[in-house]
Nucleic acid binder design. Structure first.
Lengths: 192, 192
DNA sequence: ACCGGATAATTTACCAGTAAAAGATATCGT
DNA sequence: ACGATATCTTTTACTGGTAAATTATCCGGT
């Protein structure tokens, strides 16, 4: 087949679907998907798709990338989030507080705590006043684990973002912050 | 306890941890988390965290929001992605192509196809030339399902992004596109 | 003092996704 | 033509998450 830039000839065999998958020479996969949608439904306002699709796709790729340094330390991202919440707040947290901090369900926190305490990274202690609540704290090993991973994690993040220069990065952070502020302030309200 | 705005007094009971959870009056949850990290590890370069954390958090909130209209139609996001890939490409796809298009594993696609074909939304047909491959296509019901959901989905997306005005939206899309282009071009290479 | 209702954590049953292996078929080198 | 190798899909065994029910405890009103 020809290797020119034009659309594939009818009956052309070989890889089709430049929709998703590997991005074309110019434009990301989301742009290609949006193009496909517009071809099928010409009336569509695809503006929101371009933003939301890219956020989702960036998040997927970034998480995949960030998991690499964690896996080396034998932790999942969810486990690291939990340990990180304890580390950055600097004090004990109850399971429900941990659930709030890590945006996950109470049941998930219970499971993770069981594993993490079996591995000696966290300890639990019952409250004497209210015997329903438990307090969870990092062990020394847990704190060392977090502090050991964190620099590598941040270095990895820096590397992954190295394609954007300083001003772009700042602008992106600001715009995302604004969007996130809206979403966090509003979605609770819209869902209620 | 007092209801004033100041920092909680020592020994103060009640909700602590403005880290994550509900965002404070000003700033999103990510900003709060970053503040906590800086307090604990003052030397850290938190620039990347502010971008990556916000992307992840936005993605989580947006996905949660977008799932609402789908759930009403009895579809999961993953199922809709699969149907959507068939719809937007406009032709049959093999399971491996579907896996590439939806960024998921072949096994996951197999499972979803089983369910979707039981529900009469997709059909399979074996290739006569290469009997290893199967071709999957939308049924009329499947196409109608997608076309019925899509407008509601886009309207929902528009509503959710309504906090940003046009220029901001465009700028955000452009920056994300640039980042995504880098990630998609680069991560495959970095992981190899 | 005690009952009804709220709250904290856990347990249970289940579901979706994954990685690795299996099964079936095609292709290439000799 | 034949065997090794690659490719496409499905299956298997397992993991991690969730929703709903469960257990235990606290609190507020009468």
């Amino acid at each position: 087949m020809t290797a020119t830039e034009g659309p594939p000839a009818a009956g052309d065999e070989g890889p089709r679907d430049t929709g998703a998958g590997l991005p074309g020479r110019r434009g990301d996969t989301v742009a290609a998907v949006v193009r496909q949608w517009r071809a099928v439904h010409p009336g569509l306002d695809t503006g929101p798709m371009e933003v939301i699709g890219r956020i989702n796709r960036c998040a997927a790729l970034l998480q995949q990338a960030e998991d690499a340094p964690l896996r080396r330390a034998g932790l999942s991202r969810a486990e690291f989030d939990l340990l990180g919440a304890l580390r950055r707040t600097g004090h004990e947290l109850t399971p429900s507080e941990l659930a709030r901090e890590t945006f996950s369900s109470g049941a998930a926190v219970t499971k993770r705590l069981k594993q993490l305490s079996e591995r000696g990274l966290v300890e639990r202690r019952g409250d004497t006043r209210d015997r329903r609540v438990a307090f969870v704290r990092l062990t020394d090993a847990g704190r060392d684990t977090v502090d050991g991973i964190l620099p590598a994690q941040l270095a990895y993040e820096t590397a992954v973002l190295s394609g954007l220069d300083g001003p772009e990065l700042g602008e992106l952070a600001a715009l995302l912050g604004s969007l996130l502020g809206q979403l966090e302030g509003r979605l609770g309200a819209l869902r209620a």
